[in-house]
């Protein structure tokens, strides 16, 4: 009896495997849905940033860099290749300027030159 039950379980698994769609997605051609709270690509809202540097202080991977001349004049740089996508900057920022989106992260062949200027206070004043 047990043997028959076992055989049936296996048969069940085989049939299930034959009819269900593949587990993998042919990214980027297939449609990939990531969970709502997935810690993916970092998005930045320059208007909200005050240049306080809290995110830079807490970033464990030194992926953020603040060049500060004065309260008004500063640039915030981001090095995606160093980022660990840990979510600390999002937590530390009191102004909600920096956040994770649920999109996949980019890629590069020159990781050292990959710098994004998150905020250049001069450029945003012009």
């Amino acid at each position: 009896m047990n043997r028959i039950k076992k055989r049936l379980t296996i048969l069940n698994a085989v049939i299930e495997a034959m009819i269900k769609s593949p587990e993998t997605v042919k990214y980027p051609f297939g449609d990939l849905t990531l969970p709502e709270g997935y810690r993916g690509k970092i998005e930045f809202d320059p208007d909200k940033c005050s240049g306080c540097g809290l995110c830079v202080r807490d970033c464990p991977a030194e992926a953020l860099h603040l060049n500060k001349k004065s309260r008004e004049e500063y640039t915030l740089l981001y090095y995606p290749a160093r980022c660990a996508y840990c979510g600390q900057c999002e937590d530390s920022c009191r102004h909600g300027a920096i956040s994770h989106s649920n999109k996949l992260v980019g890629a590069t062949t020159h990781k050292d030159d990959w710098v994004l200027v998150f905020k250049d206070s001069k450029a945003s004043q012009e």
């Binding site: 202080r57 807490d58 970033c59 464990p60 991977a61 660990a84 840990c86 600390q88 530390s92």
Partner: peptide, 10 residues
């Protein structure tokens, strides 16, 4: 060499 906050991720 890292702060308590950074260490959580390390």
């Amino acid at each position: 060499q890292r702060t308590y906050v950074q260490n959580v991720h390390l």
